[in-house]
């Protein structure tokens, strides 16, 4: 599969979204918590507490919606600063109870607009990076579809980062890259190739820890196995002494792109 085909698959309209996974992984145990306590409630981010094989976890997902109505309601999965602040509030809450955090990332990027800038989109993401690196509870981030730049990273400073097979993770969209670098939007496919944004490329480069094979639709078998591997990982990380957990998280990012 070519990189551009992965891009298309990651964005496909019928692709399961964060809420689909939350529903299938946690069922009725998911209790949604709203608001950043500062400005409002960002509907692009769905967050709450749920049970995973009996273990309470904090779940934070970026939801893009399925049809036009849902997409508009969810702002197409592009979060405003209050979304990142809501996420951080829930992460701090999780830290208090030493409850593991699961982030489900699927966004073309943080929203760019007047309100987002006025309320400090850059500051909100920066604060998440700054706080997540030392959050004293395990964090696992899974990229479900699109991992768009800083907007994705704001929920992906984690102990491990996994990707679904057809998810992508990139510093810029291939369209943006082609138009900025080559002033030629017809070179999108080439840009997708050059950016090395597929799960396979990122795994090879040591940027992610795991690729989750995916069938076309969410099947019970996939959900069961996903639930188990998430549980096992969070359970394993939860048992680590906090200092070791944080040191390993720091080094995970410290070594990326380190010069000799």
């Amino acid at each position: 599969m070519k990189a551009i085909e992965r891009v298309a698959a990651a964005r496909a309209i019928d692709r399961p979204t964060a809420l689909d996974y939350i529903g299938r992984l946690f069922g009725d145990s998911f209790f949604e918590l709203h608001g950043d306590r500062r400005f409002g409630d960002d509907r692009a981010i769905v967050s709450g507490i749920a049970e995973l094989n009996g273990m309470p976890v904090t779940v934070i997902g970026i939801e893009r919606g399925h049809n036009t109505k849902e997409k508009v309601f969810r702002n197409f999965g592009s979060a405003h600063p209050e979304g990142y602040r809501k996420a951080l509030r829930l992460m701090k809450q999780a830290e208090k109870f030493h409850r593991p955090v699961l982030c489900l990332v699927d966004t073309s990027g943080a929203y760019c607009g007047i309100g987002a800038e006025e309320r400090g989109e850059g500051q909100a993401i920066a604060e998440n990076l700054f706080e997540m690196i030392t959050l004293k509870t395990p964090i696992l981030s899974i990229l479900l579809g699109e991992g768009g730049s800083g907007g994705a990273l704001g929920l992906a400073v984690a102990d491990e980062v996994w990707m679904l097979e057809n998810a992508i993770y990139s510093v810029i969209s291939p369209e943006g890259c082609a138009s900025i670098l080559w002033k030629d939007s017809s070179k999108t496919a080439q840009a997708a190739e050059c950016l090395k944004l597929t799960s396979q490329d990122l795994y090879k480069m040591g940027v992610i820890e795991k690729i989750i094979r995916e069938p076309k639709h969410i099947e019970d078998k996939l959900v069961d196995s996903l639930r188990n591997i998430i549980y096992n990982k969070l359970h394993e990380k939860k048992a680590l002494p906090v200092e070791q957990l944080l040191e390993e998280r720091y080094q995970r990012f410290r070594r990326i792109g380190a010069a000799d």
């Binding site: 990076l129 700054f130 730049s149 800083g150 990273l153 400073v157 993770y169 510093v171 990326i256 792109g257």
Partner: peptide, 18 residues
């Protein structure tokens, strides 16, 4: 970001923040 460094450029945000 520096597009030509792709994901490595993005990861510098997390690294410097840490």
């Amino acid at each position: 970001a520096r597009m030509q460094e792709g994901i490595f450029s993005l990861m510098q945000m997390a690294k410097t923040s840490g």
